[in-house]
């Protein structure tokens, strides 16, 4: 890297959302495990406290999800731009990024994608985050809301196939979110230093920021 420029990559609302969310998901995972396997897991004391904690964490995650959503859609107005892959991303970008992760990274080449506030994610991140934030998170939250209001919503639950379907969907989607976690945390350590991206998510500032002007950005930057 030629210069040690800094860019402001992660605005405050996004950081608040992110860490509330991360903490919430970890809490949900642990308490959820105890709720499903009470005879093996009793980390959180009584079953009842696991349930109350799970419900509270679910509430916090749902609220912070709303914060994230409103911030990107109405304040930053960059949701579609950041999260929805462009045609080009799908045609060439995905392949190029996959080639980097699974081949050229090991050879020591530079990441073909350089994050800027307007184009934060590489094509693989876009697709993954899109699936997580627009499919998994809303569905898990929704099924969770149904399960905490079974009596009042009984009719709708029956329409969806009954408690068992609801439970199975909630459980399997939650497993997908849990599976995302190690992959996600691991990938964030692929910066120039392992803690680089994680620091960014904490402070907002990306060190070793992109030294190429914004207009040339779009994934066409050659690696050196």
């Amino acid at each position: 890297m030629a210069e040690n420029t800094k860019i402001y990559l992660q605005p405050t609302p996004v950081r608040i959302w992110h860490w509330l969310n991360a903490f919430g998901i970890v809490t949900l995972t642990v308490s959820g495990a105890q709720i499903r396997f009470p005879e093996y897991i009793s980390l959180l004391g009584s079953y009842k406290s696991a349930i109350y904690l799970h419900n509270t964490a679910g509430f916090v995650v749902a609220i912070s999800f709303t914060l994230w959503f409103f911030y990107y859609v109405f304040i930053a107005r960059s949701m579609a731009n950041l999260y929805v892959p462009k045609v080009e991303d799908l045609k060439t970008g995905l392949l190029r990024q996959a080639k980097f992760y699974f081949l050229t990274y090991f050879l020591g080449w530079e990441n073909p994608h350089h994050p800027t506030p307007r184009n934060k994610f590489n094509p693989m991140q876009k697709s993954a985050y899109l699936a997580i934030m627009f499919v998994l998170m809303p569905l898990v939250s929704l099924t969770g809301i149904f399960m905490t209001n079974v009596e009042p919503l009984r009719g709708v639950i029956v329409m969806m196939g009954g408690m068992k379907i609801l439970m199975s969907v909630h459980f399997l989607l939650a497993c997908c979110l849990i599976a995302f976690l190690p992959t996600h945390v691991y990938l964030t350590t692929l910066g120039h230093t392992p803690m680089e991206h994680i620091k960014t998510m904490w402070t907002g500032w990306e060190e070793n920021g992109n030294d190429v002007p914004d207009h040339k950005e779009n994934g066409t930057v050659p690696s050196h």
Partner: peptide
């Protein structure tokens, strides 16, 4: 079992790539 398989799939990347 299905859930366990999904979660294990999440470990492929950190372990293999790592």
């Amino acid at each position: 079992i299905l859930g366990l398989l999904i979660i294990s799939a999440g470990l492929v990347m950190p372990i293999g790539h790592g």
